[in-house]
Amino acid sequence: MYYIAHRLFAAHDRALAAQLAQRLADKSGPGKVFLPFCDTDEEDLVADLKGHRLFQLDRERLHTLDAMIAILHGPSLDDGVCMEIGYAHTLGIPVTVLSTDFQAYSLTGDGPRLEFPDPLVQTMASRIIRTPRMAPAQQAQGAPPAARFAAFHERNRLQTHAALDAALQVLGDAPAPDTGQSDRRPSGARTLFIEPSPYLPFPHALAEAAQASGYQVHTAERFTATDPITAAQRDLANASRATVLLADVSGPETPPGAALLIGAAAARRAHVGAYQTHTAFTHADGREPNWRNLMIQYACDTRLDSPQALASWLRP
């Protein structure tokens, strides 16, 4: 089963994912492709807690996959998609990331260039496909001035189709899922990994509260490392060994690294605490209010707003 992970709140995002789904279905058969929102009938689904039901359906589906294709664009990466990438990666499912973004990123002004705002994306992806440039201009000579808009649209359409074609080409060579990877709850020492928000100062008080509660604390290194890719690999290894993940989910949406690690922790059934001092809610017809993307909200065990709340949660 191929799973297409994509931002699904706007029509143009759903349309792009549907184009990829149709091309993939034409190649492999419609029964081999799962397209969220479409195949969960999200707009018409009725449930007492619709958001929680959607989370349950999505999590069940993630355990049945052969491969994931994740569409990521721009500096603000969809937190639900990132959560799904982390979940799939931890289950050993190959993840192909597709992007038409023409920007590169760095964590400092003169730092190494990265494919995405957070190097954890590159660490977890099996393959990355980028088509950053529009197709060449082919407007006919002497065409009326207004035709430039149609020509511009066509250049973008062809760029998108090139990206989809490239994704289909590599999927045939995708590795098989690594079913040897474990998704069991970690056991052993009381260890806690802190994933800070890149938008805010490091929460030293949280680290002190965890240490005072008897936990060995590891913190993310990649945001200040001279080699962020290597540091991201260390962060992933340390987070994967921790019995508790504490992720600061503050920001316009959950930061990409936090979302990736929340998905990874949920897949291996580790405890996950979301730290957020100020909340904002999203609302959709028939769905309960969500304080973050529903995939983040329901993958976490608790939401914390102070070091005191963390200490109370960690107390045996």
Rank of each mutant, 00 (worst) to 15 (best):
I128R: 08
L245N: 04
M1Q: 06
D227H: 10
S126T: 10
D165F: 11
T123Q: 08
R185V: 02
L65D: 00
L57M: 15
A11Y: 11
T282K: 14
S99K: 04
K50P: 03
P201Q: 03
H271W: 13
H218W: 15
E195Y: 08
L24N: 09
S187D: 14
V33W: 06
S126D: 09
G257F: 07
L24K: 06
A259N: 03
M124I: 06
L171T: 04
P228F: 06
A232L: 06
R59N: 06
E288I: 07
T160K: 14
N238I: 06
A125P: 00
A280H: 12
T219Q: 14
K50D: 05
F34S: 01
R130I: 10
V249Q: 11
L120T: 00
L200I: 08
F9W: 12
S312E: 08
A212V: 05
L314K: 03
A189V: 05
P203M: 07
R113G: 10
P94V: 00
P289C: 05
R185W: 05
A212T: 05
H283A: 13
A15I: 10
S240A: 14
D165Q: 11
D248I: 02
G273Q: 09
R185D: 02
A166E: 12
A163D: 11
L260D: 01
L245T: 00
G74C: 04
D178I: 00
V244G: 00
Q181D: 04
Q276K: 10
F55K: 15
L246E: 05
S106F: 08
E288Q: 11
T243M: 12
I128W: 13
A151V: 01
P316H: 14
F34R: 04
T90K: 04
L24D: 07
T302G: 14
A210R: 01
P203S: 02
D118G: 01
N293R: 06
N290V: 15
D305Y: 12
D285S: 12
V244K: 03
Q103D: 14
C300T: 02
M83H: 12
H278F: 14
L107F: 00
R53K: 15
E208R: 13
R53Q: 12
E154K: 12
A11P: 03
Q169A: 15
Y105F: 10
S213E: 08
M124G: 01
A265Q: 10
L62H: 05
Q103V: 07
E208I: 11
L49Y: 12
L91H: 01
G214A: 06
F102S: 15
E60I: 07
C82E: 02
I85G: 02
L107A: 03
A70T: 00
H153F: 15
R155D: 08
G29T: 00
T226E: 15
Q22F: 12
H278P: 03
